[in-house]
Design a protein around this nucleic acid. Structure first.
Lengths: 209, 209
DNA sequence: AATCTTTTGTGAAAAAGTGAACTAAGGGGG
DNA sequence: CCCCCTTAGTTCACTTTTTCACAAAAGATT
């Protein structure tokens, strides 16, 4: 399929947030050089990343910010709204459910699930109540949920992933510290891994500016 | 300094969590092949990663799990306890402050700061109360905090980072959606970026099994 | 209209990272 | 003791990603 480097996709999401800020500040256009400086990379990297998808700039001028925002939206697939469910209403699950930025970026949290009967029925935000896991499959179908966040303990994660995949979920964000066996895309976010890689940089001083 | 690929360091942290689980299950040793299968990579990758740091296995046998846990601890720098402060007691800041896994991995949350006077004094966990930002520098010195988590809005992040760096903080985990200008190691965790890269995989179907 | 400056898009080179294959150990069984 | 099977450590080839360098545009200036 498309031969796009994974780092390129991550950077597109980062360019996107820069462009949003610039637009908000009333800027109209930006050069690859200026954008590169904002994120501490080379300008040639910015141009190469964008060139995988087309020619969005004007030579001598730079990139139109509105236009580029629209193009990156289409590339990433964030021009449409995605319905998201969260499995596990612990610390992280609830934080994600309440996290306003996610909704702003076109991801709508439509459901939160847990197995703990003391939590079920509890309201997390107006209109968002913790449901029982037994209703998971039906809920996914009825609400056309496409993305799921796994915020369960590691032991539960694989069986949850199996159920999600079977129910037609198309992608998973996994906060559980485990590598899943499944055939849909997964993004892993293990917070403790960031702490550990950070202190490695600290002790070895090999941080790259 | 040491020329260790960044992906290698990340994988070490992932091997570490596998080894912890294996140890808990009573296992004594594991081969590179078995470890590789757990995290869906090639066995040669596991051996290569470890070989940057020494020879920890026995040919014909595999790796002693206890031994390897200890070696990776030393490599990553997680054999000692790190004092952590959190700047920003919003959604994410509070979730991190309450996140038990971090404490289990030798990162102790010693302080939480915010500028909102309505939040100051509020107890997050037993013994952890939200402090005013004005006491930041003094607190860092008195409590020998070395790691900071920035969980503020993007607009505040850079000036916070400046204060942290000046006060002797050695590494930053940045949840704010911005690239910081500073001369200490930073790990960026922008949750919305994970959502965006995930849906790119979903729409382009370019997930790697 | 010619020239200058800026900046994009891109092919080629360099660097980084991964994977296959080989060599060297280590233990078990006949 | 010899053969066989397993598996770590290492080398080298290959793949991926980044960087360089330059031609092509585009507007500004004289």
């Amino acid at each position: 399929m498309s031969r796009i480097p994974k780092p390129t996709v991550r950077r597109l999401a980062i360019y996107y947030r820069c462009l949003e800020r610039l637009e908000q500040q009333g800027e109209d256009s930006i050069s690859s050089k200026a954008l590169a400086q904002m994120v501490h990379i080379k300008d040639s990297q910015v141009r190469k990343d964008l060139s995988y998808f087309g020619s969005f700039g004007r030579r001598g001028i730079g990139y139109d910010i509105r236009r580029l925002l629209g193009e990156i939206q289409k590339i990433l697939g964030i021009h449409k709204r995605w319905n998201v469910i969260i499995i596990g209403a612990g610390n992280i699950g609830q934080a994600i459910a309440r996290f306003k930025q996610i909704e702003k970026h076109n991801f709508q949290i439509v459901g939160v699930f847990d197995t703990d009967h003391r939590k079920i029925g509890k309201q997390i935000t107006p209109g968002l109540v913790i449901s029982d896991m037994s209703s998971l499959e039906e809920f996914i179908r009825q609400n056309q949920a496409e993305i799921a966040v796994i915020a369960t303990p590691a032991e539960a994660a694989q069986s949850v992933a199996d159920r999600l995949e079977k129910s037609g979920i198309k992608g998973i964000i996994c906060f559980a510290p485990i590598t899943l066996n499944c055939n849909i895309p997964v993004e892993y976010v293990d917070i403790t891994v960031f702490f550990k890689t950070l202190v490695h940089s600290v002790v070895s001083q090999n941080y790259n500016i």
